[in-house]
């Protein structure tokens, strides 16, 4: 979700094997640079594989180019990494959220499992409870939210959406990325 000079990214924390919950504290959002995070929803094994791959690619870029990777660049890295496996895809839908390292301009996007990028100016959603999330975000989001208001908006959107989805929930984590710092909060949620 985009705010005024800030972006927020949030996820639930459940890991399940179909209906059985295996872990209630499974991270799906990973920091890539100081101002960029990537959220991966989907098959847990591919979440871990891609997390490692993206970390590697971001670090190598940093070493080779001696500059921090911009979120827009990372989005294209993500896209091409996924499209490499066009006919045997990773079952993961990523979200990239961050601020441009130089201008601090907010950037968010998501892609599908084969890397088709969806740039958005307001919000993007992926994963299990997308319909619920679209409804919540369309209802709650407004332009130019300050970090604290953005936090409240994204939290309410996520919590109420996952409460209507049997396969999501069991806690949530929210990161608000501002030029100065990243605010991370773990939310209490319904665990049923």
């Amino acid at each position: 979700m985009v705010g005024k000079n800030c972006v927020a990214i949030a996820s639930d924390t459940r890991l399940g094997a179909q209906a059985m919950t295996v872990d209630m504290n499974f991270p799906k959002i990973f920091p890539m640079t100081d101002h960029t995070m990537i959220g991966l929803a989907g098959l847990a094994t591919d979440v871990l594989t891609l997390r490692d791959q993206f970390k590697y690619k971001v670090k190598m870029y940093h070493l080779k180019e001696d500059r921090v990777m911009a979120p827009r660049t990372l989005a294209h890295v993500v896209s091409s990494t996924l499209y490499e496996k066009r006919f045997g895809p990773y079952f993961v839908e990523p979200i990239v959220a961050g601020l441009d390292p130089r201008t601090h301009e907010p950037f968010i996007c998501c892609t599908d499992t084969i890397g088709c990028i969806d740039f958005a100016k307001d919000f993007v959603v992926v994963g299990n409870a997308t319909e619920n999330l679209y409804g919540m975000c369309e209802g709650l989001w407004e332009p130019n939210l300050e970090p604290e208001d953005l936090f409240e908006t994204i939290s309410q959107a996520l919590l109420n959406a996952v409460d209507r989805n049997a396969l999501a929930g069991w806690g949530a984590v929210v990161h608000v990325i501002t030029p100065e710092r990243v605010i991370t909060r773990n939310l209490k949620a319904r665990c049923d």
Partner: peptide, 13 residues
Amino acid sequence: SASALIQPFLDNQ
């Protein structure tokens, strides 16, 4: 058709 979109919004509001 849009119940999944609206219902969580009503829960909240």
